[in-house]
Amino acid sequence: MRKLSILVLVSLVGHTQAQTANALIESVLDKINLVNDYKAELQIKAVIPFIKVPIANATIYYKKTDKFKVESKGIAILPKQGLSDLTGFLTNTKSYSAVLGEEKTINEHKTKLVSVLPSAENSEIVLAKVYISPSDALIYRTVLTTKSSGTLSIDYEYNHNKQYALPSKLTFTVDIKKFKMPKSVASDIRNNDDKKKYKENEKGTILLVFTNYEVNKGLSDAIFKEDQ
């Protein structure tokens, strides 16, 4: 009888926790769902081992539910994951289970960790640790473990578009595998004694600064068609 009571109590606590975790995600989704489309100017500053790239400017377009495009005149390097797919993943609340974790202060914001586990076997996202502030229903950090891209963390900063949960700054930290260039392709003429020595795997950061948001102004589907 005593064992049964403990079991019931544990499952009740678990249920309440899941509810709270889901409630936290839903509070974020309530804000995200206010956005039907948006357009913003994007400044991309990438500090990545093996790649030297100037600051790039781009325009980002999004339209509900999964239309997303980054348009840049020059070459812009973006993380493969975490820009649009996380929102899509969280929106489908039936595709994952959420568990509440520890509390953590990130950039002076008190957050709660919500660990999100996908239900599908072949999901690209293996685990998402989302740090949500209950006070303003905003995500301040996400640590994504993915099948193909390894682990990446995203730090969020907000400015004028908090009501839509649209960040003003995103800092991606990604794992970069050691770059091996075939000698036939790279014909350096100098002795490479002064070359920077890299470790087998290094972290790279990509800073995205969003400005001039235009939210819910109506975007044509034609924008998202691939340029030929």
């Binding site: 790649i51 781009a58 980054v70 070459i75």
Partner: peptide, 9 residues
């Protein structure tokens, strides 16, 4: 780099 990064432009 394609596993982690995407090249736009």
């Amino acid at each position: 780099f394609e596993q982690t990064l995407s090249f736009n432009g």
